[in-house]
């Protein structure tokens, strides 16, 4: 970074607008190929909802990476765990889910995703203390240790819940679709989008408007300086790690509800997607991962509709193209 850039960044960092517009550009380019307006709207709405769920999982990963320089391969295990915790809450509350009252439905949903977040956050503390803490600062051993942790966690999930998938019913009020003319948008997708936006808004507010957020952002930029100023960086680390795990659980629970079943393979599947998203977004950048999640989900949806065979590699292609354009992701974080 040149001296000029640093000077310009001091009063207020300039936010580049073009990377944020990429999902819109992709949508506009895809629109004429899709043809029918109602199909396009359905695809786009589905993509945005999917993007929000991916963002919920990926933002935790990117925060942990940005803050602690830890690439957590155990993140997938927390995604899977969130899905299973949701089943623990929703199966006993089947009465609430099935009732006609929207309030009860919403309560069941909220309890399920909150429980997933809380349990995963708590176990994130354990994971950080046992698995990650001894190997801070050593990338190779970190990767190995977190993979080991992920293996153990996945096997424990199988030991506790068995190897079969557990069906999970959506609360009654969120089944079915809103229909506008020819366009049908699933109700649950709207709910997922709302939750995802709330997560994004919450993260943005905490990061930009609170002392803790200031310290976290400072830690992402320059860890030593935060330590030198006398802050207990290890406490901050644990907090961020717990928050990251909680977000993984939240996203996992939402995704399991969307799919109607919980299974441990969801972890590995979305871990890969999360990696792609945080690479595209710029490692450590929450805003970047927000844009990248929507971008990846939209591209996957359009590609799935236009050329199903291509859809499989669309994520990789998107990643390569973005990195050729911006080698450090859409919104690179300084110092990485």
């Amino acid at each position: 970074m040149s001296a000029l850039d640093v000077g310009a960044a001091l009063p207020r960092r300039k936010i580049e607008i073009l990377p944020a517009l990429t999902p819109l550009i992709v949508a506009l380019v895809a629109a004429p190929f899709v043809g029918s307006a109602s199909t396009f709207l359905t695809l786009t709405a589905a993509g945005i909802a999917m993007g929000m769920m991916i963002f919920t999982m990926a933002s935790g990963l990117t925060l942990v990476f940005g803050m602690m320089d830890v690439l957590n391969f155990g993140h997938g295990a927390f995604i899977a765990l969130g899905a299973y915790v949701a089943t623990l809450v929703l199966l006993p509350l089947a009465g609430w889910s099935a009732s006609d009252s929207v309030a009860l439905n919403l309560a069941a949903f909220a309890l399920a995703i909150l429980a997933a977040a809380v349990v995963c956050g708590a176990l994130g503390w354990l994971f950080e203390r046992l698995i990650v803490k001894p190997v801070y600062g050593q990338h190779l051993r970190q990767i190995l240790a977190t993979i080991g942790g992920a293996i153990i966690a996945e096997q424990l999930i199988y030991a506790l819940w068995g190897p079969d998938q557990i069906p999970l019913a959506l609360p009654a009020a969120f089944r079915g679709s809103f229909v506008f003319g020819d366009t049908a948008i699933e109700k649950y997708r709207v709910l997922a989008t709302v939750v995802g936006l709330a997560v994004f808004a919450g993260e943005t507010l905490i990061l930009n408007r609170t002392k803790i957020g200031l310290l976290i952002r400072a830690g992402v930029e320059n860890r030593e300086m935060v330590e030198a100023l006398g802050y207990r960086i290890d406490r901050l680390f644990v907090g961020v790690f717990m928050a990251g795990s909680a977000l993984a659980g939240l996203g996992g629970a939402m995704m399991a509800l969307y799919r109607g079943q919980a299974h441990a393979t969801i972890g590995a599947e979305f871990l890969v997607l999360c990696f792609i998203v945080i690479i595209i977004g710029g490692l450590g950048s929450v805003g970047g991962s927000f844009v990248a999640s929507i971008l990846v989900a939209l591209i996957a949806n359009y590609a799935g509709f236009l050329a199903p065979k291509l859809a499989l590699v669309s994520n990789i292609v998107a990643m390569v193209v973005v990195l050729l354009w911006r080698p450090r992701g859409l919104y690179p974080v300084t110092g990485r």
Binding site: I131, P134, V135, R141, L144, A145, I147, G148, G149, I151, I152, Q155, L156, Y158, A159, L160, P163
Partner: peptide, 27 residues
Amino acid sequence: LLPGLFDPHRWLLWLGLAFVLAVYFAP
């Protein structure tokens, strides 16, 4: 719980434990 943990399909659990211990104590 123990039958579940010792289930033959869970053998990777024990190897995973050995793996993590190896990463820490016997790099």
